[in-house]
Each structure stands twice: as structure tokens, then as C-alpha cells.
Amino acid sequence: MSIDTLARVAQNQRSVDARPLMTARDVHVWYGPKHALKGVSLDITRENVTAFIGPSGCGKSTFLRCFNRMNDTVAGARVEGRIELDGQDIHAPEMDVVQLRARVGMVFQKPNPFPKSIYENVAYGPRIHGLAASQGELDHIVEHSLQRAGLWDEVKDRLQDSGTALSGGQQQRLCIARAIAVDPEVVLMDEPCSALDPIATAKVEELIEELRGRYAIVIVTHNMQQAARVSQKTAFFHLGEMVEYGDTSQIFTNPREARTRDYITGRYG
């Protein structure tokens, strides 16, 4: 770990604990017979960006998808445990999953723009939820969201082009714009920068910093530097378990578990 990164970690220590926006208690996930997530508990707050790190296949995406109940759509998947949003059980029958997913937005691991125009991609969410009173307002939301995702300058002259005609990295930023256009309370980002160049990555990280405090943000990343740069809390997963959770500075400088240390220093994984 470079000195530079360590300095950033120290800087990010200003995290203040507040009432969690989302809480997960003893969450288990099975895919058919496979026990993919084994009893994980975690709090997510608006003030802190939470990073999920861990080797491939350890259950980071699985856990992330529990927060907006995307695992409901996977045939054979079973989720157990209690997850609350603002004190409300998201598995309760009175919880409307459509509204839950509007409040808890997600950027998927693989870019998945709709095969519609760039404009339509971003405008779709606000439109179905009735967030814009007029066409002008919708235009504004689209522009603002694309700007925040760092894509506006590249696409402002071709908003009617198909979203699928963009490059992989542009598509991922389009998906970010699409997610924040709905103005969710929580944004779940599954490796949002894995296909991005350093400049676009920096833009997304800026966005995360800007959104912090307003939205609760969870980011899955394989880039340790990125985790250190953008997050205040880090959870390390291994084989479906959450091995260690704590302040990012503590995880990166002084992990309690040997497995965490090995992973962070690249000796393992």
C-alpha cells in the first residue's frame, strides 16, 4: 500500500456514525443447494460509503442484491434474515418491492443499458415513477444525471443514439446516470469502474464523494486503492462470510484478521 493511499485513508477518518439507513441482520442466501451467503450482519449509513471487498465468488454481489431484493428474480434463490430500510422490514408483505427498488438503486456488475436511446435510458426511471412534471423538467433530470455520471459531454449531441452503441465504459456510466436519475436513497454499485479508464474512474469517484451524505452508498470493488479512496467503512468477505468489517482506515492499516491482511496485501485471493 502506497504512502499516498494511506494518507487518503487517514483523511477519510472523519466518518461520523449516525442512525443506519439500512440494516442487515444474519442474512443467508442459498442458490438451490449452494449456501452462498452465511449469516451476514451490517449497517449502512448515509454518512459513510461502504466498500465490499473480497476474492471473486465470495458473495459480494449476492449480498448487495439482497438490499433491493434483486435475488427475488433469481430462480431457485432463497434469502433468509432481516433487512430493514428506515426501520421497515423489506421482506414484510406490506413492503412494495417496486418502491423499494426505486428507493434502493443499483448499478449492475455488467453494464446493461436498455436497447433504447441514451435519453430514454435515463428518462425511463423518472417517467415510470412520475418524478418529472413536465418535459422540460425531464430534460433537466436527464442532463443533470448524465453530467453527474461524467457522460454528458460525450453524449450531449447524440442523445437519440442507442445506449447499446456506446463503449463498455460509457455504457456503465449511462447505467450510473440511469440509477441516480430516480433519486434513490441508497445506491448499490457493483464494480462500477471495472470497465472504466482512470479519468472516468476518477469522475465516478468524485460522484460518489459528492453523493455521500445525501445517499447511502455501497460499492463493490476489486481495486483496493479505490476502496481506500472512496469508502469510510469496508467489509471483507470470504467464502460467503463477512470476515471483517470496520473503518476503512482500520481495515487497511491494521486488520484484525490474518485473512484480511493477506488479501489486502495481495498475498492471497
Binding site: 434483486m70 417496486v98 426505486a102 438503486g105 443499483m106 446493461n112 440511469r178
Partner: peptide, 18 residues
């Protein structure tokens, strides 16, 4: 139709019907 399209729509709060 790739499942990622369904996930994308469901993920921003479209109903099943939408």
C-alpha cells in the same frame, strides 16, 4: 431476451408488467 434487460428494468423500480 437477455436477463440483464429484465434486471435493469426491475432494478430501477419498474413493475413486472412494465
Amino acid at each position: 431476451v437477455p436477463p440483464s434487460i429484465r434486471e435493469a428494468a426491475l432494478g430501477i423500480g419498474a413493475s413486472r408488467l412494465q
